[in-house]
């Protein structure tokens, strides 16, 4: 399930939903991305997250479809927050369950690598010197290229 929301999420609740009544799920990987205090030397006070409604969901579904064609995934969920976020706030949740850990680890990492380079979200950082749009990073593109 893909969820785009302003509200926070509860990792415990998400984990429970990933495994509820599913004794085939021998492995669960969850990832949470958070607002960090220091980015590329800038003191960050908070973030504003913009997205392209409609395309966001469509692109994430395409990424999930690709993951499901590569690994055996039992259940999955992606949550991405939008709007104004503060230091330490959760930004993104990716959870994957599978029979074995290899599939769950790989799929979760793939979902995040592709989300970061293909899903239409943009971060604007609020810093003491004003607000700045975050630039994409070469390391993220390289991370996504590993899966080609």
């Amino acid at each position: 399930m893909i969820v785009i929301q302003q509200n926070d999420f509860d990792v415990g609740e998400e984990y429970k939903a990933l495994v509820a009544d599913d004794t085939a799920a021998g492995a669960v990987v969850t990832f949470v991305g958070r607002v960090r205090d220091l980015n590329l030397g800038r003191d960050v006070l908070g973030l504003h997250l913009e997205h392209y409604p409609g395309m966001t969901e469509k692109s994430l579904q395409a990424i999930v479809d690709e993951a499901q064609s590569r690994w055996k995934i039992l259940r999955w969920k992606i949550i991405h927050r939008i709007g104004d976020l503060h230091l330490g706030d959760n930004i993104v949740f990716v959870g994957v369950s599978s029979a074995h850990r290899e599939d769950a680890f790989h799929a979760a990492e793939f979902l995040m690598d592709y989300l970061k380079t293909r899903a239409p979200f943009w971060k604007k950082e609020l810093t003491k010197a004003g607000s700045v749009w975050v630039e994409s990073q070469e390391k993220d593109l390289q991370a996504a290229k590993r899966w080609e």
């Binding site: 392209y52 409609g54 995040m112 970061k116 239409p120």
Partner: peptide, 28 residues
């Protein structure tokens, strides 16, 4: 993007399409 799918600059646009231009994405 054309109709909410990433495309190359050579992609041919049809009447009624929704085209978007944007900077590299920075979510996650």
């Amino acid at each position: 993007s054309v109709n909410q799918t990433l495309v190359k600059a050579s992609h041919v646009i049809q009447n009624g399409d929704e085209v978007a231009f944007f900077p590299p994405v920075t979510g996650g």
